[in-house]
Design a protein around this nucleic acid. Sequence first.
DNA 1: AAAACGCTTCGCCCGCGAGCGAAGCATTGC
DNA 2: GCAATGCTTCGCTCGCGGGCGAAGCGTTTT
Lengths: 212, 212
Amino acid sequence: MSGTLDIAGTAALVGDPARANILGALLDGRALTASELAYFAHVSPQTASAHLAKLSEGNLITMLRQGRNRYYRLASPPVVQMLEGIMAVAVSGTPHRRAVSRVDAAMRAARTCYGHFAGRLGGALADSLGARGHIVLTEDGGEVTDSGTIFLSDFGVDLGAAQRRRRMFCRPCLDWTERRLHIGGAVGAALAARCFDLGWCARTKDSRALKI
Amino acid sequence: MSGTLDIAGTAALVGDPARANILGALLDGRALTASELAYFAHVSPQTASAHLAKLSEGNLITMLRQGRNRYYRLASPPVVQMLEGIMAVAVSGTPHRRAVSRVDAAMRAARTCYGHFAGRLGGALADSLGARGHIVLTEDGGEVTDSGTIFLSDFGVDLGAAQRRRRMFCRPCLDWTERRLHIGGAVGAALAARCFDLGWCARTKDSRALKI
DNA sequence: AAAACGCTTCGCCCGCGAGCGAAGCATTGC
DNA sequence: GCAATGCTTCGCTCGCGGGCGAAGCGTTTT
């Protein structure tokens, strides 16, 4: 009201368990559907819908329609910062000194995408595969081309399980720190898993090695 | 519970209007009494007491008894960061682009003490006056010595209005960015007002000029 | 066209928690 | 000693808001 900043209102949006779960699920930058978020929040779809409406109203998240689904994602970097700030305080509650920094660091690391590569590596990887025509990545969705399917299969990535539905198993993911898209969804996760199997882990320059 | 960080719980602590007012009042780093905070929050003392208990329980604020008063202050820098993060989001709600950064900057400036000098200037000022024996500033409270009263009066600071009660009108203030005490309370405010009247405003080195 | 699906809106119930009056402890002052 | 002050605890009321069932709307599929 009266242009005055509503601290309590904004905080209250995060102050509900269901909404906190939703925001936590979105914290890695991915866009998730209303149903997925309902699952994360452990509430019914209609309840989740109400929460999502409030979060949208409060400009914490944005929505984009795509087919009969509606994808939600965090609205802006400041929102991520805010959530991190809250988490930093929430985690430093009871534990004694030492544990604080450790967990805090772990949480910050977790902010980058959980199952798939992010940051510089993720960006370079996406650019590399995109340049070779193996994947097509846009703001609204991603797709694996036929050549990409072959390439990934040869590389040892198991695409079978998640490939039942052609769309949506490859999703673009905008990393807030890098401000660029990288590969998310099932493909990204499978790709990352394969890389871990090969023992490549999170080296800085491993994107180069992928070109083999 | 179970060591899991309780994002919703922490956010909910800030999500109540009364508690948000309390935290906002403490945001400049000062320590305020329960009654003062009740006034800020526009609630009765017993209601404020309940809120303060919850905020303490959540490790957002700390309390120190002093006489029959109890002073509350924000518990740690992360709490300040969190509140700033929330404010940054709360302020960027409706306004269009341009207004955001302006208001945001203003709020960050306001984080330092409202009525009196803070930051480098405040620290230097406090050190200077303390070295001359004009004030005595400790963690628990401040006091203006007789020589300080004379000095400030000569300087043109009006101490009459706020001097009815000897104690508490001079209060130390720990600035989070500087991590050092500076002059707060009525004396600090009056001093700052006098400096503004003289047109000295917020120059970096004005503490030197005060030695005249 | 009809059915399936995803999501939202409507209506209602119900429990949590903020709020205050009154009373209970501390500490300070005369 | 008694009174005053500052804050907390207790007991209670009550309104807000989260929760889900049922129904409605738009899109996709066959």
